[in-house]
Design a protein around this nucleic acid. Structure first.
Length: 442
DNA sequence: TCTGGGGTCCTAGGACCC
DNA sequence: TCTGGGGTCCTAGGACCC
């Protein structure tokens, strides 16, 4: 076969389905509304953000009227009224529900799948007979439409980045497109704007444009050293992916969240401490609730408050504060306590606040929480523990058991083996690599 | 008057440990 | 008392994603 698929064993065709239209997520929201109201088909539709502040979703027809994504509602209102554009407030529950249904259908039709966002997923076809893929893609498309009412487009390619790119082309054509050979890849990349690549944002694009790099193919040809220097390891990965070398693996099991955030822009300014305290308490409550739902606990909580950055005539102030929680927790009262302390330290009176938020970080699962600290073991037992640790340290040399949490973890582990009573404490996930090597040595 | 709400990953630098 | 190397953790900030 002599193409890149064979040359790199990790490469495999990846299929990606998204909502039809221009910007995937946005259109999906509009598509969702259409599923329940077919009379909207062919008509311009927009979906608004929280507070109905700005436009976060447009149908193709709305886009054709020049309504842009993220545009404030009031700016687009004239066009909207003139053309009878249908306007919806966002209904995230509905979209989440539709998304689940779509994902269920999609993942049932492929050997491997990764849900990437509310309206996108990667499907892996390792072991699948390649000649059957195009037909299979058609089947996927038909079924999703029939069973959920949502149109998807599909791009097939050796890497996730390429699949995403070719999907965009598919969307504008027949809805399905496959590329395999390096010639086909280059043909796609030559016409593909570099700024549309997955991983190229505003800043990188600006820099690349200044250098005269306009197409994805030109980017692919840049020296690796330059890419590594200016765009870090993620840039290099992107470049490899364009060469057909898969660097971003399919994540089959969804990872537990590493941060949980609740934030809002306010419909009306908040300008008293009392009001702000109520608001952030509410956010803290929601965050704690989300964390418990994920069966996870947080090691720290951050709050932030901002005035309205768009209104330059008002005095500006924004600040944030992170509080470490003494014990990792998802307990509302505990988190609330520290959120209040944090707010007290950063709140300044005399400002009109427009936005605030609470974020839980250092999340890890409750089950992993475990281990450590021996409670009231007697002296003999303690010296047994110390000696064992010394032995491990000798075995491991400089990579020995030096950090207290790892020490505690080892003590607990040893005590467990001997059925000794012990007190529970935390082993933070950042110690796990180290802990694994210690386990091996012991 | 009116401008979204979530997340992720990477890097550099300082504190701290043995 | 002075000194260095190897290592970890944490934080802030910047970039990106949908």
């Amino acid at each position: 076969m002599g193409n890149s698929l064979v040359a790199y064993p990790t490469s495999r065709p990846v299929l990606r389905g998204v909502g039809s239209g221009n910007t995937p997520r946005l259109l999906n929201y509009a598509s969702c509304e259409r599923v329940f109201n077919p009379s909207l088909n062919g008509k311009p539709v927009v979906v608004l953000s929280n507070n109905d502040g700005s436009i976060i979703a447009r149908s193709n027809e709305a886009k054709a009227l020049g309504i842009s994504m993220g545009q404030p509602y009031y700016q687009a209102k004239k066009t909207i009224d003139e053309h009878g554009v249908k306007v919806f407030s966002s209904n995230y529950e509905l979209y989440g529900d539709m998304s689940n249904r779509m994902m269920t259908v999609l993942s049932s039709l492929a050997p491997e799948s990764e849900i990437y966002s509310i309206d996108e997923c990667f499907l892996g076809f390792s072991g699948f007979e390649e000649s059957r893929l195009p037909d299979h893609a058609h089947l996927i498309r038909e079924r999703t439409l029939k069973w959920t009412g949502i149109p998807v487009s599909i791009g097939l390619a050796p890497t996730k980045t390429l699949a995403k790119a070719v999907n965009k082309v598919a969307k504008k054509n027949e809805g399905i497109k496959l590329i395999r050979t390096s010639d086909e890849i280059d043909e796609l990349l030559e016409k593909y704007p570099v700024e549309d690549l997955w991983g190229i944002g505003r800043k990188y694009n600006k820099r690349l444009q200044e250098m005269g790099i306009k197409t994805a193919l030109q980017f692919k040809g840049l020296p690796e050293g330059w890419v590594k220097k200016h765009m870090a390891i993620s840039g290099l990965r992107l470049q490899y992916e364009l060469k057909g070398i898969s660097c971003i693996p399919l994540e089959k099991v969804s990872a537990t969240k590493k941060a949980i955030c609740t934030s809002r822009s306010f419909g009306q300014y908040v300008s008293t401490y009392k009001e702000m305290e109520e608001v952030v308490a509410n956010f803290a409550f929601k965050c704690a609730e989300k964390a418990r739902k994920e069966n996870t606990v947080a090691r720290a909580v951050t709050i932030f408050i901002h005035t309205n950055g768009f209104n330059t005539t008002l005095p500006q102030y924004s600040n944030s504060r992170t509080m470490r929680l003494p014990v990792a927790t998802a307990d509302t009262a505990e988190i609330l306590h520290y959120v209040r302390l944090a707010l007290r330290s950063i709140y300044r009176p005399g400002y009109a606040y427009k936005k605030a938020g609470v974020m839980l970080t250092g999340l890890h699962t409750k089950d992993a929480v475990q281990m450590d600290l021996f409670d009231s073991v007697d002296r003999n037992r303690q010296s047994f523990l110390m000696e064992t640790i010394d032995e491990v340290n000798q075995k491991m040399g400089k990579k020995g058991v030096f950090d207290p949490p790892v020490k505690f973890a080892l003590q607990t582990h040893l005590a467990e083996q001997k059925n000794w009573p012990m007190q529970r404490k935390f082993l933070s996930p950042c110690y796990t690599t180290r802990w694994e090597s210690v386990l091996k040595a012991s």
